[in-house]
Amino acid sequence: MSIQTKNETWLILGASSSLARAFAAEVAGQGHDVILAGRDQDDMAATATDLTARFDIKATPTAFDAMRMEQHPTFAAAIDAMAAGTLNIFLVFAQMPEQDDIDADPTLVVPTVTATYSGAVSVLHCLAPLLEQRQAGHVVIVGSVAGDRGRIKNYVYGSAKAGLHAYAQGLRARLFKSGIGVTTVKPGFLDTAMTWDAEGMFLVSSPQAAAADINKAVTKGKDVIYTPRFWWVIMTIIKHIPEAIMKKLAF
């Protein structure tokens, strides 16, 4: 791991998840400041104290709600004022109700898609100009293997992630002009609170391992990564299953 000498700021969007916490610890461990954005203020305050105590960096919690898109412009302005120098973004929030629950209660579709897709696109679109002005920075967008192929088990969530992947591709081309990298991360099964009671998980990896992987990809300026890497193989196979067969599969 290379110790970066220049002090940068990482804005963590959705800072209460275990992947967010692990990634924040990764970059704080390299001496970068972090802004923790999310809804659970007490939780983020605790994480901020923790990171400050461990790594002697500046960690600032701030309120952010992906669903309140009308507030995103003001949020971006506040971030602009808080972060001097290079600003990097790590976006990880999403909502993933069980597909069965969504099927039983279709009003869950809107919050799922808003939190996972529209809210993400909205806040990134408000923040992109800040990075362009600074002509520096890096954006990490956490997508999902679920976005690679629509499956009966989670296609509402999966389709929102697929949309996010496409947005990331466009944003990558736009920010490339300003020398800013965009990394799309597609985690396989992570051992987090969100997946604690999920069934049928295999080859599960820890948030810490995923965070270290992602940080390495950022350093190398990768565009798209799977973490752990073998998910690339699994998803390549799944993506190539003909639709005529896929529709008969129950996973």
């Binding site: 987090t192 609170a193 604690w196």
Partner: peptide, 9 residues
């Protein structure tokens, strides 16, 4: 078994 990650949980 539960494995909470936050005080609230």
């Amino acid at each position: 078994t539960a494995r909470p990650e936050r005080q609230k949980d």
